[in-house]
Amino acid sequence: MSRNAAFAPPPDARTYRLRTARGEFAVVDSPVADGAEPKGVVLMLPGFTGSKEDFTLLHEPLGARGYRTVAVDGRGQYESDGPEHDEAAYAQTELARDVLAQVAALGVRVHLVGHSLGGQIARAAVLLDRDPFVSLTLMSSGPARISVSQQQRVKLLRDALDTMTMAEVWQVIQAMGPPEEVGGPAVGPGDPDRLRSRWLGTRPAQLLATGRQLCSEPDRVAELAAVAPACHVVSGAYDDTWPVPLLDEMALRLGARRTVITGAEHSPNTDQPLPTARALADFWDDVCSRQRSDRA
């Protein structure tokens, strides 16, 4: 598959702006495959510098397993609106309330998946209100702040954004070869023109505010364990943003299912999409089976 095809939505998917009580959000909404038994709806939140396109390669295999998948650009990410310079609009609680509004607009309880930064926003949404969520999957998303090396790299990005335009920063990123967490524009799926378009569409205030969150996030695992629905911690076999042993420990503290995707690093959704989709669907199938048993 070409990198450009990886950026394009699946043939049966709809791209539209989801209207919510907190504004409109750009989504890719992919249906259950023809002939598959519908099992549930999934809402997927991308990471720092990412977008809904980071989940492109998961839609079809998850649809074949019976899951409708909705990937969303958060406030100020790529094709979703947001203020250019008002960082207060991107406070974590504001972004979490956006997620609750998105679920309300979908009109059904969902399996929530958050990649990296998206996982910490997903956690915050569950801590505000767990009721809309059937399950929570934290993908390559750790218990607290990112590693020291990644904090340093995010700081470099923030410093650049303080003095340069988004277009100028893009040129610097291309020249330097970006790290995992800052590197969504360069290492995500899609050809360079599409990736540049995504970068330029993202609001500087969103990057500044969420970059600070990644560098200062407290450990809220105990809070989450007290209220969370069924949890799943997924990662690649190597991750410099949150080391894998840290993710192992977090899963134990949550009482969560733990899946390590062989051959993947910080983005198993793009590095190894088929094993990642299989692990996600197996988890959701088990959650639904247990719920049916509890009701019987």
Rank of each mutant, 00 (worst) to 15 (best):
P132M: 11
T241Y: 04
R153I: 02
H232T: 05
W170C: 00
V172W: 12
Q174W: 01
Q152V: 08
S135P: 11
A186Y: 13
E180W: 07
G201F: 07
P189L: 09
A167C: 02
V233M: 09
D159F: 01
E181Q: 12
E217K: 01
P185K: 07
P245G: 05
L157M: 14
A251H: 06
G236R: 06
L214Y: 03
D191N: 15
V172I: 10
P143F: 10
S197C: 03
P132V: 08
L214Q: 09
F133T: 10
L195S: 10
M164Q: 10
T202E: 12
V134T: 14
M250L: 10
A167Q: 11
P185H: 07
G211R: 02
E217R: 08
L200P: 04
A167I: 01
Y238F: 04
M166R: 12
P178F: 00
D248Y: 09
P218V: 02
R212H: 13
A228M: 10
A226W: 02
V244M: 08
E223T: 04
A222P: 02
G236F: 07
P143I: 11
P179K: 00
K155S: 09
M250A: 11
T202C: 06
D131T: 13
S149E: 14
L247P: 10
I173H: 00
V234F: 02
M176D: 08
P229K: 11
P229L: 12
I146C: 14
V187I: 14
P204L: 09
A167R: 10
H232G: 04
E223L: 13
G211F: 03
L128R: 08
S216Q: 12
